[in-house]
Design a protein around this nucleic acid. Structure first.
Lengths: 225, 225
DNA sequence: GAGGAACTTGCCCAGAGTGCAAACTTGCAC
DNA sequence: GTGCAAGTTTGCACTCTGGGCAAGTTCCTC
């Protein structure tokens, strides 16, 4: 149901595959909601999605992989925003802007739900980690492309990797604190908190984590609660 | 908790368990060396360690978990160093000092080997990620304890999580770049490179990543010392 | 050295993941 | 349409994982 202006020939085959993939992740998410993590099998998912067990494995290598599509969608969104930023902008500022886009109800809702459903289960947490790491690699690549655009600039691998990793860590930290404070609350006030947490985290990063506590935005955060 | 004045009662049982645990990880590592990742089973490990398959699972929940003990040992070493730093020292400086300890032949050797053996295999990479994440959580806890010691200081959860995550990311970035540059080379020159990479990474972090890409910034080292 | 706690092991079973080959669907050309 | 090639689904069979259970073994304590 995505009508992009530049639709690259969605053949019947492609449509079917996309529909099946969607059916699988929907089924997996429903089972997660209904039975809780670890209480359903691949066979259950396949049955709910109307396919055979074997076909499930043609699409995903595990239950976790199927559920990871939620996190991946979430992080891909941020990554897309990052790529849209002008090349001459400082990377930290681009990152801040990209992360800011995550504090949007539509975007964060699936992630918030997954988070609450996932919290207790270790194998699901593991695939979350993988998703964040994958996003880090993507950011590194995006940043490299950006650097390549500016003439006379050399790529400092260490700088890029450290920066990308730190940015992602800050995003993760903000999300963690937000979930801990607000649960899966998606009300405007809660999203404001998330936005402020993201700003603060990137702020700490930009300031080199100078002072142990920066009262300026911290109090602001508490006011919102 | 380990080397306290109260003798840590190494009973026969404890010894046996420790020996078995060690035998398992040794066997796993040998098989990894000999057959490569994914080309041996839990049964192979158990046989090589002289125990039953069932007993293996009494110690580790998977092959990856058994191999992760290498990474965990590596990171625990850093964590221990971190805890040894004075409480009034800035956290970043403590982190720098702790990471510096990793550039030691004895410490880094197993990690370097594991890295080269692991690189291609995704499920092993995943458990590495988990180990780094676990270390992050430990650092957060250690930092909290430290903050609790200083009177009148409030714990800023976001600050701590963002900082710990960023520090770990910088350590990871330095290791990644080092492996990419030097492979598993443990010669003094190579270790110097690692040391400098760690210093630079933490330097970038402390400087808020404000400088454009610029390798080998020895000024930052001077600043910190 | 008797008794109990801790540990190992074999047995069993549900479920994960994958290769294979037979069926079926779609795309394409005639 | 007909037909064929390429892509997909599915059942089947198989290996491996992970863990519950109960019987056997080792270690500690009294």
């Amino acid at each position: 149901m995505t009508d992009e202006p530049a639709a690259p020939a969605p053949s019947r085959r492609e449509q079917n595959k996309a529909a099946t993939r969607q059916a699988i992740t929907d089924a997996a998410l429903n089972l997660l909601r209904g039975k809780g993590p670890g209480n359903f099998t691949v066979e259950d998912i396949a049955a709910a999605a109307g396919i055979s067990r074997r076909t499930f494995f043609n699409y995903f290598s595990s239950t976790e992989a199927a559920l990871a599509s939620v996190t991946n969608g979430f992080l891909d969104h941020a990554l897309r925003q990052f790529r849209l930023r002008p090349a001459e902008e400082p990377i930290l500022e681009s990152a801040r802007a990209a992360l800011m886009e995550l504090a949007d109800p539509m975007t964060v809702a699936p992630m918030a739900e997954l988070f609450t459903l996932t919290q207790q289960n270790s194998s699901l947490v593991r695939s979350e980690l993988e998703a964040w790491d994958h996003c880090t690699e993507q950011i590194i690549m995006a940043a490299k492309e950006r650097v390549a655009k500016t003439p006379g600039a050399a790529i400092d691998e260490l700088y890029l990797r450290a920066l990308a990793g730190s940015v992602i860590s800050c995003g993760k930290a903000a999300m963690d604190v937000w979930f801990a404070q607000c649960g899966a609350d998606l009300a405007p006030a809660s999203l404001s908190v998330l936005r402020q947490l993201l700003i603060d985290a990137i702020g700490h990063l930009g300031a080199g984590f100078d002072s142990p506590a920066r009262p300026s935005s911290h109090t602001l955060l508490k006011d919102r609660l």
